[in-house]
């Protein structure tokens, strides 16, 4: 098997201090992205557990593959879930969900939970899209912008470069700072043309780290341009897979002159903000409109 340079860890995580047996409402959120899928469980509107996987060939399978191991890991029975909310690119194709909510609204709510009421701007850099969202103190979206047409500024763009240069994607952030002189951004926006430009840089004697730095800088510039359309207000938070790449995030911060905040609880993974928001929507819906548990009676995933 060829080495896959885009791989990241896929694992379940839970808050050991919480007990699902004493929970009133258990809600699940599932975010089916184009590249990764996440499942989150909330106990009475509090974050409890999460799982991240690579999205499979179709949404129904990915949704099941994200949720099922998490239920097994936490010992929660499928029929005990009060509300399941789906979100993300594949949200319309999750057969066992009770409701679908847009990823924009879910990100707003999930990020608000992670950061708190002072959060105003969210940048979500996903595998196949990039979103900029303004929220109010309750996490309600007041302004948003999405770009899912063009691979520039998305995780897929970064994966393409990782594959081209044969550098594991998780190393790109650190390596992009192991350079002697500041990097000029790659000038082509289009990923296809940026690839040729990156190859030409390698041939002209630039080190891999310099080329990575140039691409990270180009991506940061691109995303900054996108953010400019809606403006950036503090607190500013970055979610999605690229939030783990400091080569991009630190350069965005430099462009904006604003530091991005971290989740209040360091154990919360910004990549799960969408699924968390979905689970929180599920909690509110279960509280207001009643549990959907009965519809799952006797069933398993």
């Amino acid at each position: 098997m060829t080495k896959e340079y885009w791989r990241w860890d896929e694992k379940c995580w839970k808050d050991e201090s919480m007990d699902p047996k004493s929970a009133g409402i258990i809600s699940a959120g599932i975010d089916i992205g184009s590249v990764s899928s996440e499942a989150v469980l909330c106990l009475d509107g509090k974050f409890y557990a999460s799982n991240t996987i690579r999205t499979g060939s179709n949404s129904p399978t990915s949704a099941k593959d994200a949720l099922k191991p998490l239920l097994e890991y936490t010992g929660i029975a499928y029929e005990n879930l009060d509300y399941i909310v789906g979100t993300g690119y594949g949200r319309v194709n999750i057969p066992f969900q009770d409701k679908a909510v847009t990823e924009i609204a879910c990100h707003g709510r999930g990020a608000n939970y992670m950061v708190g009421p002072s959060l105003r701007t969210i940048l979500d850099m996903g595998g196949q899209d990039c979103k900029a969202i303004h929220v109010d103190e309750k996490g309600k979206v007041t302004n948003f912008l999405m770009n899912d047409k063009c691979a520039a500024g998305t995780g897929r763009g970064m994966e393409t470069i990782a594959d081209l240069l044969k550098v594991p994607i998780t190393e790109i952030g650190d390596r992009s700072f192991q350079i002697d002189t500041p990097a000029e951004p790659i000038s082509n926006v289009c990923v296809v043309f940026a690839k040729s430009e990156a190859m030409a840089m390698v041939k002209s004697g630039k080190t891999l780290n310099e080329v990575l730095a140039s691409y990270c800088k180009a991506m940061a510039d691109r995303v900054t341009q996108l953010l400019d359309r809606i403006g950036v207000e503090k607190e500013f938070f970055i979610t999605g897979g690229i939030s783990k790449n400091r080569g991009v995030t630190e350069r965005i911060e430099e462009n904006l002159g604003i530091k991005a905040v971290k989740p209040k609880d360091a154990r919360l993974d910004p990549q799960t903000a969408g699924a968390l928001g979905a689970a929180l929507f599920g909690f509110v819906l279960a509280s207001k409109k009643g549990s959907k548990k009965a519809s799952r009676k006797g069933q398993t995933l």
Partner: peptide, 16 residues
């Protein structure tokens, strides 16, 4: 809410 639909690509910015 201000909803921006559209995209940016190498050729420009197109939002409604």
């Amino acid at each position: 809410m201000i909803a921006n639909y559209g995209y940016m690509d190498g050729s420009g910015e197109y939002y409604i």
